[in-house]
Design a protein around this nucleic acid. Structure first.
Lengths: 347, 347
DNA sequence: TTGTAAGCGTTATCAT
DNA sequence: ATGATAACGCTTACAA
């Protein structure tokens, strides 16, 4: 016996948790009455209620979730699903913003948050299987990619769920989103208004609706102004991708004077490359980013960008899920927050 | 009926989940045999095993977790507890690093991660009550502060748990840590070796052992070299706090030529103030930070700092918890990772 | 308003 | 190796 610390694994001093029966006995009522008193207290006399409350307090009773769940068929928890395996798309501020949004929207609801992230050596369908297993009452999906299969899995399982960001089959799912199309449009318009004549873009991944929408918005603004829309290179939202895309852009479109990058990280990467080429920002080339999650003000020059209110979005999604779980009818139209351009130094 | 989208809330098309009884029937065996076959398959004939496996596959059977949990007294999930309510201490890279560490260490273990963050309008003891309620098999605690009461709660509940970072009563708890004392010592030594003669520090919160240890290490190095250790101001790890502390330091110790800040964010805040005072870094004042979680390389000049391997630490903590849950004996001594100074431009 | 009793879907015990 | 059978702790008709 070399064990030096009792971290509880022996459940040594922990008393057996009191059961509802014991509470009922201590309160001098039947188990059913105790149960009713504990769950909202409908059809229970004031004196019985009091006796039960008292017994609960004295015994330190906490309902056994498994037992309750077994009969109610409710688990008391919701999942936050993050299917993105690596750190490319799912960066720090995005993750924390989402987490804080969900967590604070959960508020006092007693619901617990179980986090389902894709894991390194993930066998295919682990997430689907978990979701299908009835371990949670509902799910919030963020950072969704077309090929992660979540839309199909969720639709099939019939589990209540809300997407943060429009899914690819919007008719089949509840979701909240921000107007990424208009965000891309505003970004491009800013460059146009600034006097740029050869405007390019570094788009996000096209297996995410946000990436597609921002690109489409950019293209729409350019077309409306009579500009070419062929200056497009793709990236995965990271700074490295932004640098690489900027190099390709410079090679293909030497006379470019404006870049809309679909993330601030990519914008920062592009700025670095522009400088290495002796180009000044914003004088030679104006740059607009996207997100405003911390990166935009940290870089030099500070980035003109479009806000991406991930935390608010995650909070809205959570509240919607809560409504649905509470039996509310699904809304007729999804919530779509407006895009907001914030002008700083880079454009 | 204005409902337009079936997000599953009616559980419309979802078939009732098949039970163990149905699987047994389909396989032509008893429920007990089916159960054994499913759980590892000891004392089960090859043909029975095959028949059960087949039935499981055909019916798409997934064990009901609540029922299983009720009898095994295991929930199949562990909690990650983050008692820090606001964004001061628990910054983005810290949170994501911890999350990734835990998540990847959970690996293929089938254990689910339930995230317990302090919430805005938290009634006191919500976390303790949850932990005491037997909703999880074990807990990992990160970002622990002295007054959050977690040490007492966890000790009382007897729930297996591991702290990321040494708790205040180390004898009572399992934990993993990095050598913050030596980290502070190395930081100070770097300043001494560089030729600084009046070395100060911006310490972290003293209600966290990490803050205390870094300060103590700094002081020890200074004393060993025969320097004064009175140049101390406190901060809460944020950039704003670093700036404020630097101002106070400058006022109190006008001839300072070295600053050790207990976080990179505070170091960056200090650098900004130093520059505003016309002081150059590192020529007039050398600065060493702490963390190296992204901030250090992003600032100008890049920060000499001490690595804080939060992700590794969280992973180690998780593996230790897994061991304990699997019945392993607690280790005799805690894991303490070595501190590592990384030299860049600021000192 | 209260109590009795019947499950909820598993695992564990114990004969066989 | 297998199969009855008894828990596990709770909610919920239904009866009183």
């Amino acid at each position: 016996m070399t064990q030096t610390i009792d971290s509880g694994q022996g459940r040594g001093t922990a008393h057996a948790a009191p059961t509802l029966d014991e509470v009922a006995q201590a309160a001098g009522v039947s188990r059913s009455t105790a149960s009713r008193a504990i769950n909202g207290g409908h059809r229970v006399s004031p004196e019985a209620q009091l006796a039960v409350d008292d017994a609960v307090e004295r015994l330190g009773y906490v309902p056994n979730r498994a037992a309750r769940s077994l009969v109610t068929r409710r688990t008391g928890s919701v999942a936050l699903v993050l299917p993105e395996p690596d750190e490319r798309v799912l960066n720090d501020p995005f993750l924390t913003g989402t987490l804080r949004g969900v967590s604070s929207a959960l508020g006092t609801s007693e619901l617990q948050l179980v986090l389902i992230m894709a894991r390194p050596g993930d066998q295919d369908g682990r997430i689907a299987r978990y979701l299908g297993g009835g371990h949670v009452d509902g799910a919030i999906v963020a950072s969704h990619h077309r090929e992660d299969g979540l839309e199909e899995d969720l639709a099939r399982s019939g589990m209540p769920s809300v997407f943060v960001g429009r899914p690819f089959e919007p008719e089949n799912h509840l979701y909240v989103d921000v107007d990424n199309f208009d965000g891309g449009r505003q970004a491009a318009q800013r460059l146009i208004d600034r006097g740029c004549r050869r405007i390019t873009t570094i788009s996000g991944p096209l297996d995410m609706t946000a990436g597609i929408d921002r690109l489409d918005g950019w293209a729409a603004a350019l077309r409306a102004a009579g500009f070419e829309t062929d200056g497009v290179e793709h990236g995965d939202f990271t700074m490295a991708a932004g640098s690489a895309a900027a190099e390709r852009l410079l090679a293909r479109v030497p006379d470019l004077d404006g870049i809309f990058a679909a993330s601030d990280a990519m914008a920062a990467g592009a700025v670095r490359v522009l400088r290495e080429h002796g180009l000044s920002v914003p004088d030679d080339v104006a740059v607009v980013g996207y997100d405003d999650l911390g990166f935009a003000v940290a870089s030099t020059p500070q980035l003109t960008t479009v806000t991406n209110p991930v935390s608010v979005l995650a909070g809205e999604a959570t509240m919607l899920l809560l409504d649905v779980l509470a039996g509310a009818e699904a809304p007729v139209a999804p919530t779509v927050l407006p895009a907001e351009l914030v002008v700083r130094a880079s454009a």
